[in-house]
């Protein structure tokens, strides 16, 4: 016979999906509750949730807020010459 806990127990696959679904959509009350129960009981998904949030921070920082001045300069002489040639067609 299924207990209440069984009904509320997610699989690891579903739990990890819900963790990342929150990036775009709000979870329902039931989903939030189920996720909370699961991550309390499951060490792997508890770690996944922590790491997924860390990845969000890293991705946000890496993709959106990097400063031009912090990027190492790559010299590309061929590109420079090619562009100059293209915008001065007669030369």
């Amino acid at each position: 016979m299924k207990t209440l806990l069984d009904l509320l127990m997610l699989s690891c696959k579903k739990a990890s999906e819900l963790i990342d679904k929150q990036l775009l959509l709000n979870l329902s009350l039931k989903e939030r509750l189920m996720l909370k129960i699961h991550t309390r009981l499951c060490e792997a998904c508890f770690e996944y949730e922590k790491q997924s949030k860390l990845l969000d921070k890293l991705l946000l920082k890496h993709i959106s807020t990097s400063e031009e001045s912090q990027i190492p300069i790559q010299i590309n002489i061929e590109l420079k010459q090619k562009i100059i040639h293209n915008i001065n067609p007669k030369k």
Binding site: E68, Q74, N76, K80
Partner: peptide
């Protein structure tokens, strides 16, 4: 401007796309 800034622009595009060829196309 190409002489002054193309390396900065290329470095930025490379950082953003991680692909040399794409970065060059975008700067052009």
């Amino acid at each position: 401007w190409v002489k002054l800034y193309s390396d900065n622009l290329f470095s930025w595009a490379l950082h953003k796309t991680s692909d040399r060829e794409i970065a060059e196309d975008l700067v052009q």
